[in-house]
Amino acid sequence: MMSNVIAFEFPPINELLRWKDVWAAGSLNKVGLIAVASALIGIFVFMSAANKNPKVAPTGTRNLAEVAVEFIEDNIIMQTMGRDGLGWTPFLLTLFVFIYLCNLPGIIPLLQMPATARMAIPMFLAVLVWVIFNFSGIKHQGFFTYFKNVLFPPGVPKALYILVTPIEFISTLIVRPFSMAVRLFANMLAGHLLLVIFALLSEALLQARDKILIPVGILPLFMLLFLTAFEVLVGFLQAYIFTILAAVYIAGATHPEH
């Protein structure tokens, strides 16, 4: 009687992603709560770090905050923007910490929902980065120079502009924010769905009416554990990639020669 496994029903995807409102209709749901909690945790950690004595060797939250600052400065800004970009540290640091804290609940037991697995937050952040890199490009180079550099990249034969300009327009102004948002959102959503699938499968197998199926349930359970460990990595990596892409786009807009 394998049939009760074949008949395994996957819940509709909206049931996995759309959460009930906490108070009144349309007020605040789990994803919003996670976002608020992420911001609050970030604020708490950095606030308590800022209020510690900077003279003594850093401990606790101060250590955490300084490691994060150094990570952003050494591994993201210095690698992509160089020394000039150090002024962007607070923005990129906030971006990284916020995304990471929004990704983390995907693997925390009982929470089990990354806030970035819904389109809202990645879309907002991608649009924000889009606005910021365009504005900083306009501010550094002037409106016309910036768009001339974006749409008519120097060093291209004149005849090729008919081909290059539409491609550049689409890739810089449309695909960039779209791919940034989709990359973060789809990675977290895919991870969340994988976790759901294997959790449901192991539950179905471990509670199967056929006793012979119960040991088989160990396999998806191991897969679940492995995927959870993998999601730890993915959550960090996606926050890192989103931040480094923001840094690359801002650097490209402020220094067109690179």
Partner: peptide, 20 residues
Amino acid sequence: RTTMFLGIAFTEALALIGFV
């Protein structure tokens, strides 16, 4: 390593767009 992650991010976008 930094450049590798950037390259992976750009390449992976195609698969993720497929997923979406």
